[in-house]
């Protein structure tokens, strides 16, 4: 369609003369008489067709871009089983203190209710954390996703640190990267011990960059 609009009328006339046929001579619209009026008419014609297609395109764009309009942070909330003792937003109960072994990181799943478009899934595993008890009694938590490209990190067979099986990213027992594959160390998460329970403030971070940027 844009071809029509871009064509100056003089060109139209060129072509018309090239392929002049018996019908053209009897034409009473007179292309040569009022090229300006023709041009305006043409603009109106194409303009109104475009305007006619505007409502469907606009409505469609709104729906297609809807994920951008949805409120942030509403996608997951702490699971109903966690409700009793939850005080701080974003903390999830992932383990009990007696299930942790000193200097030996273990993988625990994080369960939460998750809204996925039209469905609400209750108590779904939404991610994993490594918990490691330190000799001083403190607990370190890492998000189990590799900061490189998001694969799940595993503990090394010798028990000394972590290995990402996808691209061989290596981390020491404190989550510090040992080679240049991951752009940053494993993502540490906040831990709270509430009585016998270990609660972790579970977050996901953007991958592939050296800064730790939380995903909304």
């Amino acid at each position: 369609m844009s071809n029509h609009g871009n064509l100056p009328d003089s060109e139209t006339m060129n072509f018309a003369s090239v392929k002049s046929s018996p019908q053209d001579t009897s034409s009473e619209t007179g292309i040569s008489k009022a090229p300006r009026r023709h041009f305006i008419k043409g603009v109106f014609a194409i303009g109104s067709i475009c305007a006619a297609l505007c409502p469907p395109i606009a409505a469609g764009a709104m729906v297609f871009l809807d994920p951008l309009f949805k409120k942030r942070g509403s996608k997951s909330k702490s699971s109903s089983v966690n409700d009793q003792a939850e005080s701080t937003v974003g903390y999830f109960r992932v383990a009990t203190t007696d299930s942790l072994v000193e200097n030996h990181p273990q993988l625990f799943k994080v369960y939460a209710d998750r809204v996925d478009a039209w469905n609400q899934f209750n108590n779904q595993a939404i991610g994993g954390v490594f918990l490691q008890k330190q000799p001083d009694g403190g607990i370190i938590a890492w998000n189990s996703r590799c900061p490189h490209l998001g694969c799940s990190v595993e503990t090394k067979h010798d028990g000394e640190g972590f290995l990402c099986p996808c691209h061989m990213g290596m981390f020491d027992p404190l989550g510090i990267r040992q080679n240049q594959i991951s752009p940053r160390d494993l993502d540490r998460l906040e831990v709270e011990v509430r009585g016998e329970e270990v609660w972790v403030q579970f977050k996901n971070y953007r991958q592939g960059i050296s800064d730790k940027v939380e995903l909304s």
Partner: peptide
């Protein structure tokens, strides 16, 4: 007679606009 450009196209345009 009329030619398609621009007279008939204008009619099409107006009719489409009214429809939409």
């Amino acid at each position: 007679r009329v030619s398609f450009w621009p007279d008939q196209l204008l009619r099409i345009g107006l009719a489409s606009f009214v429809l939409s």
